[in-house]
Design a binder for these strands. Structure first.
Length: 269
DNA sequence: AAAGATGCCTGGTAGC
DNA sequence: TGCTACCAGGCATCTT
């Protein structure tokens, strides 16, 4: 699953092949993504890509006029191909550059999207997003203020993109473990001191993961975008029934909303 | 009205 | 070998 670190890794991987390059052709083999890929994507043919930006888990291609955004959903990837590369089953979109390089979008589950926006507009999907977790705008006072009076469980709140972007299911569980906070805790009940630890934990988990992504950057450009959180040392995620590395008591798995949560009842309160 | 809870899209994989 | 259950991100659409 591309989480924020994977999207950042992808951005860095394709950037040299994209920025200041001209798109010759956009081939849409299957427009049935989360939302249909509009015909109007062809308007970018002949245009130069001026910059590439990541916001939350969106990649934003800024063209000479307007641009488009790509979300990788949960199974999407972008990779650099040459013209003779074999097209595989789930390769839905090609951005063919006049250098001969192709940015190929693959997404088996088609939960992702590719949507254009007009010059000087912000796409509705990018409005109302909270701060980037690794930016200075995401700090303890901010989060503590946003949590105040919230009755929902802390885990669901930190996964809410209006509060902070890019904290997926895996990182939410891991960060709460590092901060010693139970995922069930009512968000508004958490002290500023604990929130401070939580903010630090979110940043460190994401930073560690981006570092991991960096190690696979070369492989990514060569062929596959498989880079991974799975290389991370996971303390609780996916470890239901196994023993806590810190206290040796069993990790508990349960459902929060529709999602699996993992925590150590001894270490997290 | 705002906040919280639920639904939905899809295909790979684990388990039998 | 084939089947079913399960999982996941995040927006849309309900409830309360």
């Amino acid at each position: 699953m591309p989480e924020l670190p994977e999207v950042e890794t992808t951005k860095q991987g394709i950037e040299p092949f994209v920025v200041n390059q001209v798109i010759d052709k956009i081939i849409v083999r299957n427009p049935s993504l989360r939302w249909p890929v509009p015909q109007s994507m062809s308007c970018f043919e002949g245009m130069v890509i001026k910059s590439l930006e990541r916001r939350s888990k969106y990649l934003i291609f800024h063209a000479a006029s307007g641009g488009f955004l790509i979300h990788l959903g949960m199974s999407g990837s972008l990779r650099i191909c040459s013209a003779d590369a074999e097209i595989e089953k789930h390769d839905h979109i090609d951005l063919v550059f006049n250098t001969g390089d192709i940015v190929r979008y693959r997404d088996p589950r088609r939960f992702g999207c590719c949507l254009p926006f007009e010059q000087d507009t912000i796409h509705p999907l990018l409005k109302n997003l909270g701060p980037e977790p690794l930016s200075d705008d995401f700090h303890a006072d901010y989060l503590h203020q946003r949590l105040s009076n919230k009755k929902a469980a802390i885990k669901t709140v930190i996964m809410d993109a209006k509060i902070v972007v890019g904290v997926g299911n895996i990182y939410a569980s891991e960060a709460l473990f590092l901060a010693g906070i139970s995922p069930k805790r009512q968000a508004g009940s958490i002290s500023l001191e604990s929130v401070t630890q939580l903010v630090a934990a979110i940043k460190s988990v994401l930073e560690a993961s981006i570092k991991q992504g960096g190690t696979t950057l070369k492989d990514f450009v060569r062929e596959n975008g498989e880079s991974g959180y799975f290389q991370l040392h996971l303390n609780v995620y996916g470890r239901g029934g196994e023993n806590c590395f810190r206290c040796d008591s069993p990790i508990v798995q349960f459902k929060q909303g529709q999602r699996s949560s993992f925590y150590c009842p001894t270490c997290q309160h």
